[in-house]
Design a protein around this nucleic acid. Structure first.
Lengths: 266, 266
DNA sequence: GTAATAGTGTCTCTGAGACATTATATA
DNA sequence: TATATAATGTCTCAGAGACACTATTAC
């Protein structure tokens, strides 16, 4: 392709003459919805990492961690970078969610945001935290009000409304900055839809896991109870048994550890 | 919320001091994949509107119609605007597909593209064309090579490869500009996945349609044949019969017209 | 032993897939 | 009447959902 265009320029001449500064551009950010699973308690719960804003606009409201996309990084690389800044982790599962482009979504200036979902096993976060690589710590001192910048919040939909529960009590959509409430609701919706026909649930578990663990995770994502025998039957396509058992916490039969199947049967 | 932030500014003071021109920004475009359905011939075929590039880069290659997002329009509004420029139509079905953010995807400068899928019934396009509102005409003189800027192309996946067929013969992915081949493949994939659990197929049909029409459309989207009795049984949930019949083209029993059900049963 | 949790066997009923048949138009 | 296309009836089999049951640990 060394043809000339309508103005009689070659490709190189054209590239040199092209001036991207002629037009005013919007800013582009990434917002990364970082999820993990809380395994304390009888039932599991999804948790999302939120940061308290210490600047206008939406001063003191909570937001999904995000930042500007640099000129020399892809949008996805920017999401990976933000994720590492917040959690100290690379190589985690990351999926593009949606791009938010309303003119007035940020009162400062025109900002378009590409949102991503990140899924991290709790064990991975605890490990990073122990090594001091994770700024957003999981362990909270009971009773003491949580004044940290970044904090994990239980997230659920109660009677159609978004509900967030962190160290500072219960929040809802109006306590969130920008359009981040809609973002979180869309992410939860997406995960519910995808959990049965993709392997996203496994991105929240360590390599080895028991069937009860897996089922409770599905129940946390779907926000409904499942029938254990049918769940096992259906999941047998996706997982294979190892030769290890776990130690029961209280009493009861120890569960076998399973792992994700390599050669995707079915 | 009239608190002061870390620098002791109110929200209004902060907004005034905020200067978005400090950083260099990427450009943001929309690319709109405009689909319709070709009903000539025994089987139906999906068609996509492509434009021939008359400028560098990718001079003379084909591309999905797109353009810059203005500062005073939402990203979705920009997609609607581009769609109207190409087809003369508003109020058509539009769905965000994916945001493409690789640094090198455009050799000129950093451009992030938000892609959309638009679905338009052929009858709507023909109507707009008859009234002279549609720049991208559908009717082609047989035999004559097609030198128009915008042209419709049959689109399919043959042995895993994208294949496009327009007035100028057969194209494949390497005849397309930028990452538009990947875009089109993702769009076809998405439509195949969504056709059975959403109502996207109906966005390509007029208000009234026959069962054979509907089935051929599904077959065009899925690129596989379906079993007529089972297809009717399954679709009865979505459609309701009218009291009109169509006139058979050649011979045979006339088909009933159906319409989309209002109160979504199931 | 009892309590508690993990895991299995199997019955029923719905729904998908395939085939045979009936219905209604044109030529 | 022959032919072409539209539409239906129904058989079979696989899989989802529910239930009762067995298994293995701690105490």
């Amino acid at each position: 392709m060394s043809g000339k265009n309508a103005q009689g320029l070659t490709e190189q001449e054209f590239l040199n003459s092209y001036n991207p500064e002629k037009y005013e551009h919007p800013s582009v950010t990434v917002d990364t919805l970082i999820f993990t699973v809380d395994k304390s308690g009888e039932d599991y719960h999804l948790q999302i990492l939120l940061v308290r804003r210490e600047a206008h606009p939406f001063l003191h409201k909570w937001a999904v961690p995000g930042g500007f996309v640099g000129m020399k990084e892809s949008v996805e690389q920017a999401a990976v970078r933000k994720l590492e800044e917040e959690t100290g982790l690379r190589d985690t599962y990351l999926e593009q969610l949606y791009t938010w482009g309303d003119v007035e979504r940020d009162p400062r200036t025109r900002i378009i945001s590409v949102s991503y979902i990140a899924l991290i096993p709790r064990e991975t976060l605890l490990c990073a935290e122990k090594e001091g690589r994770c700024p957003a710590v999981l362990t909270t001192r009971e009773g003491k009000q949580d004044m940290r910048r970044a904090a994990w919040h239980h997230v659920s939909i109660r009677e159609g409304r978004l509900q967030l529960q962190g160290g500072n009590g219960v929040l809802d959509e109006k306590d969130l900055a920008f359009d981040h409430g809609r973002m979180i609701r869309l992410a939860l919706e997406r995960m519910k839809n995808k959990v049965f026909y993709t392997d996203i649930a496994f991105k929240l578990l360590p390599e080895k896991f028991t069937f009860p663990e897996l089922q409770r995770l599905y129940e946390a994502i779907l926000e409904e109870k499942l029938h254990a025998p049918n769940f096992r039957r259906d999941m047998k396509k996706w997982v294979e048994q190892t030769d290890e058992k776990c130690k029961p916490q209280k009493a009861g039969k120890p569960a076998w550890y399973f792992r994700r199947r390599q050669n995707e049967k079915h």
